[in-house]
Design a protein around this nucleic acid. Structure first.
Lengths: 342, 342
DNA sequence: CTGAAAGCGCTAACAT
DNA sequence: ATGTTAGCGCTTTCAG
């Protein structure tokens, strides 16, 4: 497989000049004669020369690669974030090495080590639901590895973070349900260790407190962030003496699972029970699920921007960027008067 | 940002031995004393040494990176393929550089050049709907760049390909509709230049021919592969004097768009009109859309396997691997007797 | 304006 | 078993 790739040496030899001159011509240095440059460029094209970036990087001690670790990328959410990251990174000639941790801290740690060995210049990460690698990230920070957390962050670490205010938007979502007239609002929460889950639960509690509603602990369940987990929760909630009239879910997949299970049980959304999700998904939109939409692309762009700043050595103190979100009200949650009309 | 990273030189100096010995100890060579090795390993850990893969690669003229170019990765389909690829690649210590061409041949070409500059050892690609880069891929093949096409291929190129038999499975999908009693079956096709689209159209025609049904050219539209394009087609089809009683769509997004538009127009699926998709999607499953499922993960794994073979220099002649698929019948297409019961 | 030479971090002959 | 040296492809002094 070792068809020889053209190097500057080849060009130099063919042209009878030195490699230094070839290098200068190729990199657009001004200290080279116009004729020479054209000659070199022509020959380079003729031999289909491609610079060996590895060699250049070895010399400059850089790689022009940043790493990204996300829990998964089969759902729309992280892919959109990644696209935002790539947009900014590519514009600055950086490549993006994408890893998925598959929601396990173990694989996450291995990904980190792999990225370190690959000498990436920085890492953007959305931590796993297990969130067990705090010491590893602490080490990275100590070693001055440029690092930005996105969406799923570790609250105790002092580092750049790009998030939305989950607590506030969960509050708004639940507030919306309360204003629609729902009074027994259940919560299908995510993983307790995950900051986003904890914050959304806090927002749920805030709204209850703010509007003087009792919190019923048996209406709160932390089952995880996957669609399949929802049916368990629904089954339990429907087995209660006093059933909830609404469910606020930690994210759209769980909300979708919730709606499907309710439908299977013959219950109507929102007449019998309202459902609200979080983070928006195409499926949710199609199912007319009320949800909070996050600016995914923008989050990616901002995170990449901050990372590149760090890489360039603009050593600002760690900062948390809180982006705006939006509550999109759809048919899965309607005020009483509209519900009956439906 | 230039906190000094430990090199073998540092270790050698600290220990008062030569870099060669350090290298040998680190790479697990047998020609080094056990004591020395332990000493080196201890010191390496102490200094938190990470091998500089770039340097090693420069020497060995490899990168341990393969490139992947897909049209997009916001839908489930390509991400699943990529996961399959990563599984195999990572197992063999290869990293995967993921690019998206955004369905434009121009960006696709730039991605290719970038991957070449990054000295990837091989490329797996699913071409854009424009499919204009045949000459570029031809060059890559001439230059012996290991290359595997997946899902979307260029029929005229002699190269490794991993696909399903789109024509056959489109036939099966349409056959299913015919056996259900549908007689005026429309086709919302994709891009004519795309082999998968052309093949699915052929399968559609095959089925008509095989079952002696007339083909009505005005029931066939090539609108593209995106969900949004479907409403155009539906509008047109419903404007016909004799309306179709079923629609076979080039893929699930279009089929989903089709179902949504039909619903908006107050038409029932499958009673008024049946819909069948292709390639399966989570949304399609939730909407109970009949569809052909492709073995995405497996396609990725097989493609990666073939690429690594090429990289290792096992120069077999180019081969097209045709994987099996499956027609999943759901409620969007039902035989006459079941439809009325519903 | 151009060439010679050093060196990025590492490995692999070739010596010892 | 260990050290010395050359060199992967490139950029960048330093000389001319």
């Amino acid at each position: 497989m070792s068809l020889h790739k053209t190097t500057i040496k080849d060009i130099a030899k063919e042209l009878g000049i030195s490699v230094a001159t070839v290098s200068r011509a190729l990199t657009g240095s001004h200290e080279v004669q116009e004729e020479t440059r054209e000659m070199v460029l022509r020959k380079a094209k003729e031999l289909n020369y491609r610079p060996n970036i590895q060699a250049r990087n070895l010399l400059k001690n850089r790689t022009n690669i940043i790493g990204v670790i996300v829990p998964e990328f089969v759902s729309f959410f992280f892919p959109e974030i990644i696209i935002g990251i790539q947009e900014v990174a590519n514009r600055e000639d950086y490549q993006v090495l994408i890893c998925q941790s598959n929601e396990t801290s173990d694989l996450e740690r291995k990904n980190i080590e792999m990225l370190e060995s690959s000498r990436v210049e920085g890492i953007i990460v959305s931590v796993t639901k297990e969130s067990k690698n705090e010491p590893v990230f602490e080490r990275l920070l100590n070693e001055q590895m440029p690092l930005v957390f996105i969406n799923r962050v570790l609250p105790d670490l002092i580092a750049d973070k790009v998030i939305i205010d989950d607590r506030k938007w969960a509050f708004k979502a639940v507030e919306h349900l309360i204003k629609c007239g729902y009074r027994r609002i259940a919560h299908l929460g995510g993983n307790e260790k995950l900051a986003v889950s904890a914050n959304r639960l806090q927002g749920y509690l805030d709204a209850h407190r703010h509007y003087g509603l009792d919190v019923h602990p048996n209406l709160i369940m932390n089952l995880g962030v996957q669609q399949e987990r929802a049916s368990l929760g629904v089954n339990y909630l429907l087995s209660l003496k006093v059933k909830p009239d609404a469910v606020f879910c930690v994210n759209d997949p769980v909300a979708v699972g919730c709606m499907l299970e309710l439908k299977k049980r013959g219950l109507k959304v929102p007449e019998d029970i309202a459902v609200v999700g979080f983070s928006e998904s195409p499926i949710g939109r199609i199912m007319e699920l009320t949800s909070v939409s996050q600016p995914t692309y923008e989050m990616g762009r901002v995170a990449a921007g901050k990372l590149l700043e760090q890489i360039k050595g603009n050593c600002k103190p760690a900062e948390t960027v809180v982006l705006d979100a939006k509550l999109n009200i759809r048919n899965s949650s309607l005020p009483v008067h509209k519900r009956t009309q439906k």
